[in-house]
Simulated assay, not measured.
Amino acid sequence: MKLRTTAAATMAAFALVLSLPGSASAAEGYFHYKYVDGYAQEQHVTLHDPHSGKCVNLYAVGDDEVQPGYGPHNDTDSAVVVYTGANCQGPEWKLRAHGNPARDDLLVRSVRFAVTPG
């Protein structure tokens, strides 16, 4: 009975490890941006280890019906393309890995991080 329980626990742990994202699925580090909320207060948002290869509509600004975010700063190990439109549409700019903060006039609604080899 102990052998079956041990084997089942081992298989469950192995399945859990396989389901965890690998290093190629996330940029490592932080991506920051700012936005002005409904009370006219500037807010700062930080994404920690954001997903790579997928379009991400940013929190509070990822809809074309609201004011965009601004001043993005890519402090991850992956290049990122920032878009002025939702769903990675519209004008775009590439920010290099571990770059300096962009100026506040660079607007952003969505981003896509480059997939880094794992």
Rank of each mutant, 00 (worst) to 15 (best):
M1R: 15
K2G: 03
R4H: 13
T6E: 08
A7W: 04
A7N: 08
A9L: 14
A9P: 00
T10F: 04
A12H: 13
A12M: 10
A12E: 06
A13M: 10
A13D: 05
F14N: 06
A15Q: 03
A15P: 00
L16K: 06
V17W: 12
L18E: 02
S19K: 05
S19I: 08
L20I: 09
L20V: 13
P21Y: 10
P21T: 14
G22S: 13
G22V: 13
S23F: 02
S23G: 01
A24I: 03
A24Y: 10
S25P: 00
A26M: 04
A27F: 12
E28Y: 08
G29W: 00
G29Q: 10
Y30G: 07
F31I: 13
F31K: 05
F31Q: 03
F31P: 12
Y35T: 12
Y35R: 13
D37H: 15
G38V: 08
Y39E: 09
Q41E: 10
Q41N: 09
E42S: 05
Q43D: 05
Q43A: 12
Q43L: 13
H44E: 07
H44S: 06
T46N: 08
L47T: 06
D49N: 15
D49C: 15
P50F: 03
P50L: 00
H51A: 12
H51I: 02
H51V: 04
H51W: 13
G53Q: 06
K54V: 13
C55Q: 09
V56F: 00
V56S: 12
N57S: 03
L58T: 00
Y59F: 12
A60V: 00
A60H: 14
A60F: 09
V61D: 03
G62H: 02
D64W: 07
D64E: 07
E65M: 15
V66K: 11
P68D: 01
P68N: 14
G69L: 11
H73D: 09
N74L: 01
N74G: 05
N74A: 00
N74P: 06
N74E: 02
T76N: 11
T76K: 11
D77N: 15
D77W: 12
A79M: 08
A79Y: 04
V80I: 02
V82H: 01
Y83R: 13
T84K: 10
T84E: 05
G85V: 08
G85P: 14
A86G: 01
A86F: 02
C88K: 09
Q89R: 08
Q89N: 10
G90W: 11
E92W: 00
E92D: 01
K94I: 02
K94R: 12
L95R: 13
R96H: 03
R96N: 08
A97S: 15
A97Q: 13
G99M: 10
A102V: 03
A102E: 07
R103Y: 00
R103G: 04
D105H: 11
D105M: 05
L106Y: 12
L106A: 00
L106P: 02
L107Y: 10
L107S: 07
V108Y: 12
V108M: 09
V108K: 15
V111D: 06
R112E: 10
R112K: 11
F113C: 10
F113R: 02
A114P: 06
V115P: 01
P117G: 01
P117Q: 07
P117K: 14
